[in-house]
Simulated assay, not measured.
Amino acid sequence: MSTSAEEYQPVRVEAELDEPLSRWLWAVKWLLLIPHHVALTALGIGFLVATALALPVLFVTGRYPRWLFAFTTGVLRWAWRVVYYSYGALATDRYPPFTLRAAPDYPARLFIDRPTHLPRGPGLLLSRLRAFPQLLLVVLVALVFRLVWWIGGLSAVLAVVALTILILTSPAATLLRTGHYPRRQFRSLVAFDRWVIQVLAYLFFLTDALPPLRPESGRRSGRLRDRLRHRPPRRHAPAVSAR
Rank of each mutant, 00 (worst) to 15 (best):
L163G: 08
I197H: 00
R235D: 15
V60T: 04
L147W: 15
T3M: 13
E7F: 15
F111K: 07
G218L: 14
R243Y: 12
S241Q: 10
V157E: 09
R114I: 05
L40Y: 03
F186V: 08
L137F: 11
R177T: 08
A201H: 02
P20Q: 09
G46F: 00
H236L: 13
L210W: 02
Q185D: 05
L100I: 10
M1S: 12
P212H: 12
F71R: 04
A191E: 06
L168Q: 07
R81K: 04
P182Q: 03
P56V: 02
Q198S: 05
L110H: 07
T169C: 03
V190D: 04
P97N: 07
S221Y: 14
L32Y: 10
R12H: 11
D18N: 15
L206Q: 11
V141F: 13
L200G: 01
W26E: 05
A50V: 05
T61W: 03
V196C: 07
G62H: 03
V148C: 01
L110W: 10
V240F: 10
L76E: 01
H180N: 08
P212M: 06
G88M: 08
R231D: 13
V57Y: 01
L137D: 06
S217W: 15
T116V: 11
A91D: 02
L175S: 01
L31N: 03
L32N: 09
L200N: 02
L129D: 05
H36Q: 03
S86E: 11
A191V: 02
S4W: 04
L213T: 12
A131H: 10
T92E: 05
L168A: 13
R187C: 01
L224V: 14
F69A: 06
R12G: 02
R183C: 00
T92C: 06
A172S: 12
F111C: 01
L136P: 00
A54S: 11
F69G: 02
Y87M: 10
A242R: 12
I197N: 00
A89H: 11
P119V: 06
G152F: 06
R220P: 00
L154F: 15
L43V: 01
T51R: 00
S4F: 12
L32G: 12
P107G: 09
V157P: 02
G153S: 08
L58A: 03
L129I: 06
P115D: 06
L31P: 03
L143E: 10
L17C: 08
I45H: 00
F145A: 14
S4L: 15
G44I: 06
I45W: 08
